[in-house]
Write a protein that binds this DNA or RNA. Sequence first.
DNA 1: CGGCATCCTCTTTGATACTG
DNA 2: CAGTATCAAAGAGGATGCCG
Lengths: 230, 230
Amino acid sequence: MVYFVNLMVDFIVYRVDNRLMRTYGQHCGLAEALDLVGDRWTLLILRELLIRERCRYTDIKAALPRIATNLLASRLRELERHDLLAREDDPPPVATALYRLTPLGLALEPAILALGQWGARHLAPADKAVMQPHWLVLPLKIFVRDADPAQSRASIELQTGGEKIALSVGGGRHTVRLGAAENPAATVAAKPKVILKLFSGGMSLAAAKAAGLRIDGNADVLRRMLPKTA
Amino acid sequence: MVYFVNLMVDFIVYRVDNRLMRTYGQHCGLAEALDLVGDRWTLLILRELLIRERCRYTDIKAALPRIATNLLASRLRELERHDLLAREDDPPPVATALYRLTPLGLALEPAILALGQWGARHLAPADKAVMQPHWLVLPLKIFVRDADPAQSRASIELQTGGEKIALSVGGGRHTVRLGAAENPAATVAAKPKVILKLFSGGMSLAAAKAAGLRIDGNADVLRRMLPKTA
DNA sequence: CGGCATCCTCTTTGATACTG
DNA sequence: CAGTATCAAAGAGGATGCCG
């Protein structure tokens, strides 16, 4: 399938899917990472799988406005070939393929979070860019902390922009997951922008309430997750 | 200069350098980061500036075999425009332009290290890829630790593949810098591969010596910087 | 030389249409 | 739903030329 074609001195090219795959040809971690995930759209595809854990083709396409469908198909094939994701052909009832990250793909999380944190520092405000609420999961993975690790495990559910996000802390760990929480101590509803400013420390809880945030349940668990500065 | 052209609903394009600049048009940290540094070669250019601190055009070009010269010039212009790097036109004597990272560009270090660390996990061994010894600075930034932070500041100099790398620890910080060290407690010479395995914990100091590593000076400072597992 | 700009070819991407 | 096929446009790679 993959065979090497040595075109010139120190220049290696792979032939994949009947077309050439470029490589930087540098023995350097960054260059080799970019050989695998440096193509356009690739990291955004992995972002979706990181957030949703398992997606259908259409889920990914919907989250990536304007990606060409052939390009998405090609990227998914490449990523599967390189073992960053796996395709589960679901059992007969509903014959829809599901994609999920492999351990190798999941291991990209720190890099994706770091890049996202850097890029978020100058998110142009109020431009025409599309904002999908489930993307909040990434910054929340960065900002959620447990102010009282000794206390028992507790969770809350965020409701924002039509999505639900489950946050839980305790036992020295914290998790952020898209989807409804089980037995949340509180349910918190607010606009995405308010959630983000609240958890990033740029807005106090009082200010967030004034901006429309609503808490249903025990507010202490929410406070426990917020940065100290808030 | 930069003006917006709204081609279609929710699709934004900038015109730069008399050519279109693509954007994902997503209000998401990762997407906005990739809008700025997602183009081919861009992160590798930033890697060079991260390692060398200040480079001439030719230094970067030499470290990036096969980059087209017009492409490098274009990328540098873009990065300067977005304030990731700055061009210093040196004083009259030698009228050579120097490039260095701005604080915004330097802030990419964690993301570049994280990506590099991920990519390094399956560096194909013994392939035709080019290896430049100064690239060792990146993994060393990850692996160097101070086993005894209470002790006073000390530094060593690595000599490998014709390059010198200064490592220093103490005061709760550690630095890795390309170039000769000032008053190093020891000078360590070895092949790049040996250095990397030694600091990543994959090879003991004894094994490294057997593989040709030579220490001139106080070996304790070197031991202090190695991971415990070694 | 160092630092690009131009020109040309080839590859990748984007948009759309179509299929099992 | 989950892609494949097709084709035009944009981008990358390589050679060369220009200018201080």
